[in-house]
Design a protein around this nucleic acid. Structure first.
Length: 582
RNA sequence: GCCCUCGUAGCUCAACGGAUAGAGUGUCUGGCUUCGAACCAGAAGGUUGGGGGUUCGAUUCCCUCCGAGGGUACCA
């Protein structure tokens, strides 16, 4: 069983999720091709803190404001989630920004220092000003609970803005200072960030603590299964699910099993009770945990300690994964369970498997985590705080539009319907290839401009080779049966190096599949199909097929047919379509 | 502190201990009257982060240092 995709409802499906789905789909295909019986499992994060935050924000600020069109609701809900996060983290964001300024900008520190001293002399909010002053000049974090007057930051905020505006208006060339980190933001970016925070400063800052309490209360509404809340959860969850079903359909991701976090909570809590009863788990500072190293008698920190339930009795990801992992082996009868989840959770999955093993569930040894690194943008990490989350739908639209444009330009004879279909295959293929032609343990730098270019090492190169092979066979008016009938008497005459190279590439597929399956590395197939397409191009340019005299013509036609098939098959393993024309 | 991953051409990436470390992209030069130019040919671009070691042979394995990212008890 390959568990992959795992999107969270009430959140946007972005380019990071895309890598996971592409990897999961490809790994499942490759394992099947290697001879295994495989089940694809999706695990929807339909409950948890993120859902509670989103629903709190919806209920409190946006009830009834959702768009009419059903197709637009999922995305809108994701925006509400992002807003809830921004509201609840507002103070942390503000203080984090101040810390960044005080660390990176000596001019800022000097100016703020002067202004604060001035205010202090005037006797304004004396102790808080002294505290802020100390923190800023020493580039130390400001702790909000050490502030005497709660609203000192909102009062202080315009002063910071004045300074930042001044820095933008009177730019000073940047001079590197030894031992000091390079600034991560330009003065203009700092000002923009300040303005974004300033917009909500007076309204949000004072309310953050109350909001946090509200969210905790909202969590209890879920735990208590309050009917009105459950209804709201079901309704909004479906908005996201409708989106997901469409996206997975577009990506060619089909699932044999749909798992939901909301469905394994009770089972998970039961396991926690069992673990506590058996003495494997214990309550430490009020928190149910398993001290794994201690139970294993390990001196060296290895598996550490895993909390398996919140101290208030609500469930954690771990609570549910313990139940789910057992269920995969017992209820679904699998003999190997694979988690395709990003590499940050690698320790966590080792912990889950080890706890089950300690509890006597031997099959947990056959649970494997296939990790992969994150997707970044050329300008940096994807972060909802920075507002640079590339939503899947937007990327897909951009790539599809570009594909359509290029097809119209290069193959104007195609009827519009066919063009639309092929544009789609090229666009999705391009995106998928960008996600798969990189090893699992490498960070992907996703550059939309690069994804929009269909030249070179990319899916369209391979799809194009396939389309040309198809066209040759079409011109020759031969089908597979005709090719097969001719095989016995093939005569290449003097075999050309390009023909030999192509033959070798064709023959390499089975070994590549086995290796890719053993190592869970679709990259090997991605490299293979590119290499095969390149060999085909070499052959194509060096060895005319249709104009050749018999018996070479028939032999080369067979070679074209024998290339077309593994090209299509290899692309298929990656979940990429192989159009017959482009 | 401890653990994991990464560091290869300007940029994005390959390379199952094995030949002169390869592609793409970008730059420069050429090729459509020829099965489709989303292609092809050529030029230029490298102390594989530094230093040790194992080996007939190291980008690959081991040690060490440097740099980047991530994880490390109530996020997922």
């Amino acid at each position: 069983m390959v568990e992959h995709s795992q999107p969270n409802t009430h959140k946007a499906f972005h380019v990071g999720h895309l890598r996971n789905s592409c990897l999961g789909v490809a790994i499942a295909h490759i394992l099947r091709a290697a001879g295994y019986r495989v089940q694809d499992a999706n695990y929807i994060g339909d409950i948890g803190m993120h859902v509670v935050k989103c629903l709190w924000c919806y209920d409190r600020f946006h009830r009834g404001q959702e768009p009419e069109a059903p197709a637009a609701k999922g995305r809108w809900l994701g925006e509400v989630y992002a807003e809830s996060d921004a509201r609840l983290n507002f103070r942390d964001d503000v203080l984090g920004f101040l810390l960044l300024l005080s660390r990176e900008d000596t001019a800022f520190v000097a100016a703020i220092d002067r202004m604060l001293k001035y205010l202090w002399r005037k006797g304004t909010d004396g102790e808080d000003i002294a505290y802020l002053l100390g923190r800023v000049t020493h580039a130390q974090p400001i702790k909000e609970d050490l502030l005497r007057e709660e609203n000192v930051i909102p009062k202080f905020w315009p002063i910071i803005g004045d300074q930042l505006r001044d820095q933008v208006a009177n730019p000073v060339p940047y001079v590197a200072v030894d031992g000091q980190a390079e600034p991560t933001m330009t003065p203009a970016e700092r000002l923009a960030r300040w303005e974004a925070l300033a917009e909500h400063m007076d309204e949000w800052w004072p309310r953050v603590p109350a909001w946090r309490i509200n969210v905790r209360d909202t969590f209890q509404r879920w735990e208590g299964q309050e009917p009105e809340f459950v209804r709201l959860w079901q309704e909004t969850r479906e908005w996201s699910m409708a989106d997901f079903r469409r996206i997975f359909d577009e990506l060619g991701a089909h699932f044999d099993v749909w798992l939901f976090e909301s469905e394994v909570e009770d089972e998970g809590k039961q396991i926690v009770r069992d673990l506590l009863a058996s003495g494997l788990a214990e309550i430490s500072d009020g928190l149910p945990v398993v001290k794994i190293d201690e139970k294993l008698g390990l001196e060296q920190e290895t598996y550490r300690t895993l909390p398996i339930l919140r101290s208030d009795g609500t469930s954690l990801y771990a609570t549910k994964d313990l139940a789910l992992t057992r269920r995969k082996f017992e209820q679904y009868g699998v003999d190997r369970a694979i988690w395709v989840v990003d590499a940050r959770q690698s320790l966590y999955f080792q912990q889950v498997a080890k706890i089950l093993e300690l509890a006597g569930f031997e099959q947990a040894k056959q649970a494997r985590h296939v990790g992969y690194e994150m997707v970044r943008l050329p300008e940096g990490v994807i972060s909802s705080r920075k507002g640079n989350v590339p939503v899947y739908d937007d990327i897909r639209d951009a790539v599809a539009a570009r594909a359509s444009e290029i097809i119209a330009e290069k193959n104007s004879g195609l009827e519009p319907e066919r063009r639309a279909e092929i544009a789609w295959q090229v666009a999705i293929g391009s995106l998928k290839y960008a996600m798969l032609a990189r090893d699992n343990n490498k960070v992907i730098v996703f550059d939309l401009d690069e994804a929009l270019s269909f030249d070179g090492h990319a899916a369209p190169y391979i799809q194009y080779a396939h389309a040309r092979a198809c066209r040759i066979l079409e011109h020759a008016r031969v089908d597979d049966a005709g090719i097969i009938a001719s095989l016995a008497g093939l005569d290449f005459g003097a075999l050309q190096p390009e023909e030999l190279g192509l033959l070798q590439a064709i023959a390499a597929l089975p070994d590549e599949v086995q290796r890719a399956a053993a190592e869970y590395r679709p990259l090997l197939i991605a490299s293979y199909v590119f290499e095969l397409a390149k060999r085909f191009n070499d052959f194509y340019h060096a060895c005319p097929v249709l104009p050749s005299a018999e018996p070479v013509r028939t032999a080369r036609l067979a070679l074209v047919a024998a290339t077309r098939q593994p090209l299509a098959n290899g692309l298929g393993l990656l979940g990429i379509a192989a159009p017959r024309a482009m």
